[in-house]
Design a binder for these strands. Structure first.
Lengths: 331, 331
DNA sequence: GTTGGCACTCGGTAGGATCGAGTGCCAACC
DNA sequence: GGTTGGCACTCGATCCTACCGAGTGCCAAC
């Protein structure tokens, strides 16, 4: 698409702009290592890159800045980037000591990612729908209030508060619990809905409530972890931009959908309008799905300005996603 | 402390400044309702208020802005403020339809508060330490990995992943579970640690691990819910201020401590340096503890700029805290 | 095709004038 | 004696102008 020289000039512009946030002129590029032509030639090439839509000029007598298309080309042309030594060590250390609750671990993973990249990090956890149920229990909280608790194979817990029409005594709850365990154990949570009708009407009443409660899907939002939103404030000059981006990050459901969309499109980077969200026009999103036991169950990602350090972010996200998947597969 | 006229001038300045964010001059005050003196008199009074430390001048020929001391006086002089009709309705509607998981409800409460006030909202949930255990269960996740799950009386769940030295079979876990239930049922979680030694060494091995795991206090951070951080970006001009405030809000442990400190000092408003946190110098925090069954178990609050709408924020926080306590007491 | 040269553009900065909101002070007033 | 109108003064904000310089596009020469 682009000849070798145009490509390397584009790369130099992107790299310089990422670093300085200033429009870059032909002079800087000409004196950059790897470009052995005069600034006049660079100017010609830059003019061509501009008319091809890779670069833009804020105003006539300024340098060039990359367009979304320019960033896109730059990213696509990247060779598989790798993390530097200390970062690799940091990731290794993190996953070596990681333990305990899966939620805690996912939350800590966002912290790891913000630490590595200095951008906002997002981790979408495994949907509970898929995990096998290990144990189900009904616990009475008040005469007509019962808590349904399901322990899933990955250590997550799914619970629902149930309101019963009539009080249920311990014996009823116990036999309902037994029936639910029989139906669900080893199966996904939805199997609870298939629990067979119980002969005892009191027990059946309880089972009916449980069946109904289980089909209302657990909120996706339960499984999103966001960290480092404050880093957005360091990425943008305009407080209004910061506000609108933060507003997006606060809507967990939107965040999940966003990541899912990007992953489904087979991308690992979404730049500006590629995110499909107008408030993220000045942002770029780098994502990587992770797999547990060979199955893609979640996503890790970072959100930063379009002028983000793509090589570093890509490497960090890829490595963390990989490691997280491994860690969850053993756990 | 201040004579009637000074007080009403100070009040007028604070109200005007809260609304406009501009230094307010004597002219505006003189033409304000409730002040029946000329601007010259107002000037004299304002000069006095300044030398008493209630007002400050950004520069010589500008109007006055309130100091922390000025805000403090204003807040202390407030008569118990009340919410307007629509807001009251909103709160009532919210708590009427509130149901389900306690965590979900607390999270939704932060949304209610940001909606009411347009400031960042914080809710600290009841500590799990105090709640009575309703049920305890050990669930095997992997040969040497067991999940300890305790259901608490308020519907919350406390869980710990345990690593056993040796695999434990179902029978061992069942009898350990029984022993734990006997020890803990109806008592706070810490009672688990007092479970008597079991005769069977295999069971006792498991119990030992559980006892050890339970004493490591569950993280306070589990119980903090923050919402509306994006509103901070609307409150400040300087992106750097926004960043530092967001950084604070991201550290859940810091937020809990902050609220706790303020409540412990018996305050319901902490202005600027009263928060004790340098990055919050331009912020004010309005808090209210809430009680469940007569006992103070948590806190709700909003964080905004020092020039926040104190009457509204105080009313919202008070009402929401009250209602939340009631709701949790019945639940 | 590449390069040095050159006229041109235009944002950014600095200096200067002006404006006006607001002040402090003072003399006059009730 | 407290209050008030008047007045000189201050100083940030705004606007204008000049100027600088980084950067451009174009062209003729290599």
């Amino acid at each position: 698409m682009l000849d070798e020289r145009k490509a390397s000039i584009l790369r130099a512009v992107v790299e310089e702009y990422i670093q300085t946030a200033q429009p870059v002129g032909s002079g800087h590029i000409a004196s950059a290592p790897g470009v052995q032509v005069s600034s006049a030639t660079v100017r010609n090439e830059m003019a061509a890159l501009e008319s091809d839509g890779f670069l833009a000029q804020p105003h006539t007598s300024a340098g060039r800045i990359p367009t979304e298309k320019g960033y896109r080309y730059f990213v696509d042309a990247l060779t598989q980037p790798s993390l530097d030594r200390t970062a690799t060590q940091q990731v290794r250390a993190f996953f070596d000591q990681a333990h305990g609750e899966i939620e805690q671990m996912l939350a800590d993973t966002t912290r790891l990612l913000t630490g590595l990249t200095d951008y906002a990090a997002v981790v979408v956890g495994p949907a509970h729908e898929a995990a096998a149920v290990r144990s189900v229990q009904l616990v009475s909280l008040a005469p007509t209030v019962v808590l349904f608790v399901a322990v899933l194979g990955n250590g997550a817990i799914e619970k629902r508060t149930l309101e019963l029409a009539a009080p249920a005594d311990e014996a009823v709850l116990a036999s309902a619990t037994a029936a639910l365990n029989a139906a669900a154990n080893g199966h996904p949570l939805s199997a609870v809905a298939a629990a067979p009708a119980a002969p005892d009407p009191a027990v059946e009443d309880v089972l009916a409530v449980v069946r109904a409660a289980v089909v209302t899907a657990s909120d996706d939002a339960d499984h999103v972890f966001v960290n480092g939103a404050s880093r957005m404030a360091a990425s943008f000059e305009a407080v209004e931009t910061v506000r609108s981006v933060l507003t997006i990050l606060e809507q967990q459901l939107v965040v999940v959908t966003l990541l899912r969309d990007v992953v489904d499109r087979g991308l690992n980077v979404a730049i500006g309008s590629e995110t499909g969200m107008q408030p993220l026009a000045d942002c770029a999103l780098v994502v990587a799905p992770y797999t547990v036991d060979g199955e893609q169950v979640g996503t890790v990602g970072v959100l930063g300005p379009t002028r983000m350090n793509y090589p570093q972010a890509l490497a960090a996200v890829a490595v963390v996603g990989q490691r997280l998947g491994n860690r969850l597969s053993e756990g």
